[in-house]
């Protein structure tokens, strides 16, 4: 697996985790931040939800952006190499 594919897969996992939190209604556990846990599990789920939310807005987009840049650089690099290896046109 290339580094780029790993980055895209990681971003996908983070986004999927965020979607799962939303679907399961786990965001409600973040009230633990205000000192009012829903139940004992909030002390784990609340910080976890916040961490995944932060990763959704930082880690995932950065990895996707990096993957796009890496791909673009790869294409540009190949073209430049191909052009430089072509014989010079005869004058």
């Amino acid at each position: 697996m290339t580094l780029r594919r790993m980055a895209v897969a990681t971003a996908g996992v983070v986004l999927a985790a965020r979607a799962a939190l939303w679907a399961l209604g786990l965001e409600a556990h973040t009230c633990v931040l205000a000192g009012m846990p829903l139940d004992a599990s909030s002390w784990v789920l609340g910080p976890l939800v916040v961490a995944i939310q932060l990763a959704t807005w930082t880690v995932a987009p950065i990895l996707l952006c990096w993957a796009a840049l890496d791909r673009a650089a790869g294409i540009l690099g190949t073209r430049v190499l191909r052009r430089s290896s072509e014989p010079a046109p005869r004058s």
Partner: peptide, 17 residues
Amino acid sequence: LAGFPDGAGYRASNDVG
């Protein structure tokens, strides 16, 4: 970003918040 807006406030808040 981290308070989880729910349309009328934030899920990470409480009544006094």
